[in-house]
Nucleic acid binder design. Structure first.
Lengths: 164, 164
DNA sequence: GTTTTTGCAAATGATTTGCATGGAT
DNA sequence: ATCCATGCAAATCATTTGCAAAAAC
């Protein structure tokens, strides 16, 4: 296994891992780098990228690393569907949500600008204790939309439904 | 197979199915009833309930029915996690969101009262075409919370994390 | 009668688990 | 030296798929 431990390009991550009480390992450092570079990558893709850099990382290791990093709050796991692969992003604290394309499955960030979001502040209803909130906008991304010449209808026609 | 076709207690559902262009079958009628009765049931549970009423409904039939009803817009599929079973509810058009308990996995409705929701109106950014929005509040439900005597802290401590 | 649904079995695919070895502290 | 992380293989588990028989139109 290549020794990245001495030459990691993002020394920050070593500290983040340590601060989170996690041991510093090559797969973990590289996974953090990869998740930071590619927004919303799936475990598959992250593993492939890790292999390119380390030469031998098992899928289970990638899953384990992603789980540990998620638990530690360094990255965030994004579930867009019950049956599609989870996606991961660096855990930020700005108020952003996600656009999920129902055609290609891609995910994009949206800053939460459409009105004050009741979304991300934890609160206690006295009954249910809300800790986090996920907002998923579902629709069709630019790449999957039929090319649009001029005027643009604001609301989708009912007929536009179809599945992935 | 029991002939519920003549005696379905919710004649409404027959019409809903027909209007949606779907054939009226016992599994479909019963599934609609069950989804209406039990909020947020999983396929498992729905299938078990259907068996109680019809005596023989395969899991695959239940999946097929749920898929057809979802496509038709009669029910709504709720994905709370990439790896947990989907949940289903009658499709309503009021602006409500969901509370998901990270301990027991249960789901509750919340009317969207905490400020104007930017959530449910479709809109066209010119780029991404938003059709629907899902808002998931994650936290701990009343049943899973440690019993609280008097004063209640409003924000959860960071330490309160744990997994299911 | 024709087309759609159901039922059965088997396949899929992301993720998890158990256990032995190797690496980080 | 000790304990945590990795790697391998096998297991899980919700959901989907292919195909023949049965039911709804």
């Amino acid at each position: 296994m290549v020794d990245l431990l001495q030459t990691a390009p993002e020394p920050d991550y070593r500290r983040q891992l340590r601060d989170a009480g996690l041991r510093v390992t090559a797969p973990r450092l590289v996974t953090l780098e990869i998740v930071a570079e590619r927004q919303h990558a799936e475990a598959d893709e992250i593993n492939a990228a890790a292999r390119e850099r380390l030469g031998d990382v098992s899928m289970q290791t990638t899953y384990g690393v992603l789980h540990a990093l998620t638990e530690a709050g360094l990255i965030r796991r994004l579930d867009t569907s019950s049956r599609e692969a989870a996606r991961y992003e660096i855990h930020r604290h700005d108020n952003h949500h996600h656009l999920v394309c129902r055609i290609c499955g891609s995910v994009e960030d949206v800053p939460c600008t459409r009105g004050e979001a009741p979304c991300l502040e934890p609160f206690d209803s006295g009954d249910f204790l809300v800790e986090t909130a996920d907002v998923l906008f579902r629709g069709v991304c630019a790449a999957c939309r039929p090319p649009q010449s001029t005027s643009v209808p604001v609301v989708p026609s009912k007929e536009e439904e179809e599945e992935r």
